[in-house]
Amino acid sequence: MTTDPSAGQAILSLSNVRKEYAGHVAVDDVDLTVSAGEVVAIIGPSGSGKSTTLRCINLLEVPDSGTVSVLGRTLDTARGVKHAELMQLRRDVGMVFQSFNLFPHLTVLRNVSLPQERVLGRSRKEADERSMALLEQVGLASKASAYPPKCSGGQQQRVAIARALALDPKVMLFDEPTSALDPELGLEVLAVMRQLADKGMTMIVVTHEIHFATEVADRLVVMSDGRIIEQGDPKAVLADPQVERTRTFLSAIRDR
């Protein structure tokens, strides 16, 4: 793991990304380049455009302008994105949501296996083997035949991580993965994420967990009013923020 983003090869970059909702500018002029194996944490006050930025990467939100480039495939969003390009992008990029979004009518195992069968064309047997290996990895092999509503939030989120990983993404996006969880359950999820980072997965994490950001992230990105206002080594940014807005935000978090 490296703290210098220029050391690895760029795997993902956003350039000049702008997204507006009915006259309200959610994200503007965002440039972000992420290297292979890098863990980037995005923090900032609510409404600062963190989640929108993340959702612009896998085009759950299509930016009004700007380019999204993943593994050398550059998509100019203003020109429109072809279906095949979108599908390729979604294969390369996995995502984990704040509210888990498991399919409650399917068992844990089916949740992890179904996308593999439908998206990658794996056989049921192949998919189930991969699912079980991943469920083992996130500590939930014993829950394979349970239904999500019978699992705790922390367990559901770990299943959601396994479900995304099962498609062998090259980049993982986490949108406030622990915000809906009790602190203790959040720790289980953070442990799995740390494990993933140690294995060299490229990760972009929108989070309020300053501790995780400092310990695990290689780079901290601070957003405010739809823009990136500061970024750098997490410890350095936290110790000596260069921008006033960062300072007030950090002290607000620490005061809690």
């Binding site: 979604r90 996995g94 995502m95 949501f97 979004n101 479900r163 498609l167």
Partner: peptide, 15 residues
């Protein structure tokens, strides 16, 4: 059916 599930399916690349 909660829209979050549609988003998840979409993010997983399901048609």
């Amino acid at each position: 059916v909660p829209s979050g599930q549609l988003e998840a399916a979409s993010a997983l690349g399901m048609s």
